[in-house]
């Protein structure tokens, strides 16, 4: 009797498992076809001198060249600067805004969520054009305001000056990156167990203590997700560079993604571009692992 139940339940589990896999199959086919296979093709092509006319095996030649390429090194440094500045800034600011608007009335909360989410749903080209107008050396809003306030006596070419261009890119990236984290933090804060918060208040905890001891650990999975997604997006910063600076002035805004595009599409050096793509994927994976480890260490069950 017991045996037959066990057999039946095993059959049911197997049937459910097969059904689940069948449901997954269409997505899996697309995932394998458009993600996994291109990844391996990219890896394979990175060992070739692959251009519009050549396809010759060169082993690690592209990788060796990559680390001797001063522009690639500069692009890598710029990319790391963007990540190191943008990711913490986006995370902290989003958490602050999320915490500030979460207790508000539903209407006000929705209003602020919409305001901060607007740059996310606005097309990158439209966002870039508006920022370009504001940064314009001759007719831009920034120079107009700063000049009017007496802060500057000579117009600044914000996107054309090595000292300011990368920071302008980071600022735009920041504004387009905070929308989703804010929405996620508001949702995550709404899911924090209210009884725990009330208990801590009864025990005499301050607001800060309640936040750090109760809320922060509860929203840690959301923080991890935001960190990983923002890191990946920052590493892959390309469209803003393409639309605003083309990597200039003097390579000061070159990022790895833009340099991959330049090598692959402008110079038709697909193999070299692929090698840089593989390197970028490895770096992103490493950063993500570190973030997983750090946030896991700080997590409280």
């Amino acid at each position: 009797m017991h045996n037959s139940i066990s057999k039946r339940s095993r059959a049911l589990i197997r049937r459910e498992t097969i059904s689940a896999y069948l449901f997954l199959l269409p997505s899996l086919i697309f995932f394998i076809g458009f993600v996994i296979v291109p990844m391996f093709m990219c890896l394979g092509a990175s060992f070739f001198n692959y251009t519009m006319t050549d396809f010759e095996f060169i082993g690690l030649g592209n990788y060796v060249e990559m680390f001797q390429d001063s522009i690639f090194i500069k692009a890598f440094v710029n990319t790391v600067v963007i990540v190191v500045v943008a990711v913490p800034a986006v995370t902290v600011f989003s958490l602050w805004v999320g915490a500030a608007i979460y207790p508000m009335h539903a209407v006000s909360r929705s209003f602020f969520r919409c305001v901060f989410y607007l740059p996310v749903v606005t097309g990158t080209v439209a966002v870039a054009v508006v920022w370009k107008w504001m940064f314009n050396k001759y007719t831009g809003l920034f120079n107009y305001v700063l000049d009017g306030a007496g802060v500057i006596d000579q117009n600044i070419s914000w996107l054309g000056d090595e000292k300011t261009a990368l920071w302008c890119i980071i600022l735009i990236l920041f504004t387009t990156s905070i929308g989703q984290p804010i929405v996620l933090y508001v949702a995550a804060l709404g899911n924090v167990d209210a009884s725990l918060v009330e208990a801590s208040k009864v025990d005499g905890a301050t607001n800060l203590q309640t936040f750090w001891k109760i809320k922060w650990p509860s929203i840690m999975p959301t923080t991890l997700y935001i960190l990983v997604i923002t890191t990946i997006n920052s590493f892959q910063c390309y469209a803003l560079i393409q639309l605003l600076t083309s990597g200039g002035p003097n390579h000061s805004t070159d990022t790895i993604m833009y340099y991959i595009y330049y090598q692959a599409f402008k110079l038709n050096r697909y193999g070299y571009g692929n090698a840089m793509g593989v390197f970028l994927a490895i770096v992103i994976a490493l950063f993500s692992i570190i973030q997983f480890r750090l946030t896991k260490a700080g997590n409280v069950d």
Binding site: F135, L159, G160
Partner: peptide, 17 residues
């Protein structure tokens, strides 16, 4: 201007800037 390309310059010209 290292932040401008020809289309930007043409716009400045067309504006009378």
């Amino acid at each position: 201007d290292a932040g401008a390309v020809a289309s930007d310059e043409l716009q400045l010209f067309a504006n009378g800037t």
